[in-house]
């Protein structure tokens, strides 16, 4: 579903944020992307979703290059950033309808999906209010519903659990599992190692722009824990 090959990204001023990273996310995978602050997680994610341009390497979504055919590639995925800055002058429902229009979701389908997800995330009654009046968590919920509205083949999330209440976090995890059960894939970054260990069937650890570990969760942690593995990688020179 997602293939990253020899991807490197250098910022202005010469700082190499990501160096020769290769990674594959298969259909049905939930891959947790772990690393400390400034390790290169967000740079990789933003390049995958087409926000950042890059010169080295190749990123393909379902065999479609994000560089060569960005519109076609973006049509298959959805992205939720770590800080969902949404259009504050729109109401929640207007924003969701806008996203559904962009992805060409049928009116009947979108109504049903919004109803279902909004009930699950307990935000239905607030959808008529301006996004400007929402709390961080409420904005996060609207961003999640907007991402799920077109049933993406690849769901990409940057720190999705920050700001969510416990029930909403559980609902999101269930939605991620449900999506993967239908043949989609999920690729998300997180600092919460317990969540990654329980939720992800695959783990990738990045440090200073280099991929340090990558593979099925159980194979990587063996009899230990993700926390121990992460500390081992973090202390490696």
């Amino acid at each position: 579903m997602l293939t990253i090959t020899n991807f490197s990204k250098t910022y202005k001023g010469g700082k190499k944020a990501v160096d020769n990273l290769s990674l594959t996310v298969e259909s049905g995978d939930i891959l947790g992307f772990i690393g400390h602050n400034g390790a290169g997680k967000s740079t990789t994610i933003k390049s995958v979703v087409g926000i950042l341009d890059f010169e080295e390497g190749e990123i393909k979504i379902n065999d479609i290059s994000i560089k060569e055919q960005p519109i076609k590639a973006k049509q298959m995925m959805a992205y939720i950033p770590d800080n969902p800055d949404l259009y504050e002058h729109l109401t929640g429902i207007q924003y969701l309808n806008f996203i559904a229009d962009i992805f060409g979701v049928d009116s009947k389908e979108r109504t049903l999906r919004i109803e279902s997800y909004a009930e699950d995330f307990e935000i239905m009654k607030d959808l008529g209010d301006l996004i400007a009046s929402y709390s961080h968590g409420m904005k996060q919920k609207v961003a999640i519903i907007a991402a799920l509205i077109h049933r993406p083949k690849l769901l990409i999330l940057d720190e999705p659990f920050v700001g969510l209440d416990p029930k909403a976090a559980i609902t999101l995890k269930n939605a991620m599992r449900e999506l993967c059960a239908q043949g989609s894939a999920v690729f998300f970054s997180t600092h919460v190692l317990e969540v990654a260990e329980k939720l992800c069937n695959k783990i990738a650890i990045i440090k200073s722009g280099h991929l340090m570990a990558n593979g099925p969760t159980q194979e990587l942690i063996k009899d230990s824990s993700l926390e121990a593995l992460f500390m081992e990688v973090a202390n490696e020179k």
Binding site: G92, I93, N97, G104, V105, R110, K125, G128, D129, S133
Partner: peptide, 12 residues
């Protein structure tokens, strides 16, 4: 805020 929204049929 009113928190009294009721979903009706959406149009594309």
């Amino acid at each position: 805020t009113h928190s009294n929204y009721q979903l009706t049929q959406l149009h594309n």
